[in-house]
Simulated scan of single mutants.
Amino acid sequence: FNSQTGELEVVAPIAGSPASEAGIKARDRILEIDGTLASTLTIDEAAARMRGPAGTKVTLKVKAGNEEPKYIELVRDRIALNPVYFTLAQQPDGLPVGYIRLTQFSANATEGIAEAIENLESQGADAYILDLRNNPGGLLQAGIEIARLWLDEGTIVYTVNRQGTLGSFEANSLALNEDPLVVLVNQGTASASEILAGALQDNGRAKIIGEQTFGKGLIQSLFDLADGSGLAVTVAKYETPNHTDIHKLGITPDVQVPLEPISFSQIGTAADSQYQAAIELLTSDVNVVGAGLAKI
């Protein structure tokens, strides 16, 4: 729920899910679930009403931006949660580009990214695209460990409490490779995704292409109350290595490219304008940073 508006707001639809296929996007507001006002429900109650056996239906009243609300009927399905997809794309100029899409920061995400890099390296990848679009986050530790796969040294993220006291997580091991890297982001890139993108950007390890990210950067503790309810209290916030406050501001891309409406199957293809912008940057004469290196 958006703390300011009280509305149930989509962070990012899971890639390949019924919601994604129906065109529901980051920041869309869900006003009703099967005729029940979402504003009268807790987040757990809303989630329970949207879940159900595969093959059954749920109708959502959804409002996107300033558009008129519309009803969307979804057919529930089992959602595969393998967080990592990768492939090697050979470009016309001969540059082999490894494309890695990460959909969430789960417990096995770091292992999956490491395996993807090693596999693509063995295939001859000389540059990389890391796709964090519509990745709503997940485990903070996974985000930190994945940053360490790309960074030899440097701060990954700061935590700042109410007293202004800083804590930090650092890169402290040898990166898996030093090849040029572009990271794709959009409005559905949130939380741990923003921490990773900010770390790679501020340390000069990658160029960021896409849209301003979601802006979800608070650390909260949940306290149980006597009546069975809970109270979420903000105890700290995240800042990027250059002390950019992530919350509500998000990460600003180095190259702004709007995301045109495409289907799930068109992600990472010629129909994907942000992906094509990344390919153009990697194959152009513009410097694309690697781990302390530049590709000309």
Rank of each mutant, 00 (worst) to 15 (best):
F1P: 06
D245S: 08
V157D: 01
A125C: 12
T234C: 00
A171K: 02
N203E: 01
A197H: 03
L102D: 07
A232V: 01
N287S: 12
E121F: 03
D245R: 10
A294T: 15
D77R: 15
R78Y: 15
G112W: 01
G98W: 09
V62R: 09
V289I: 13
L140P: 02
T165D: 11
Q163K: 15
T42W: 01
A54I: 04
D254T: 02
Y158L: 10
A232Q: 06
E178P: 02
I251F: 03
G94L: 11
G228I: 05
P83M: 06
V157N: 05
T283M: 05
G210A: 03
E170Q: 13
E7D: 15
E145I: 01
G204L: 10
V157A: 10
N161G: 06
L60M: 07
Q212T: 12
S20V: 00
L174E: 14
G217R: 05
S17V: 11
E178G: 14
A116K: 06
H247D: 11
K207P: 00
G137P: 01
L176Q: 10
D28L: 04
P241I: 03
T252W: 01
E121H: 06
A147M: 07
E145S: 14
L88I: 10
A190T: 12
W150Y: 15
E211M: 09
I14P: 01
N134G: 01
A232C: 00
G52A: 02
P92H: 10
A127Y: 07
E280F: 03
R49Y: 02
E194V: 07
I209E: 05
Q276W: 08
G154D: 12
V289Y: 12
V286R: 13
I117W: 04
Q4F: 14
E121C: 02
L139N: 11
L132P: 04
A142Q: 04
F214C: 07
Y128C: 04
P253A: 00
Q276L: 13
E68Q: 11
S284E: 00
Q220A: 15
N177I: 09
K70T: 14
L231I: 05
T5K: 13
Q91Y: 06
G55R: 07
G217V: 04
D131W: 11
N119Q: 14
T5V: 07
L282R: 06
A26W: 07
L130T: 01
R205V: 00
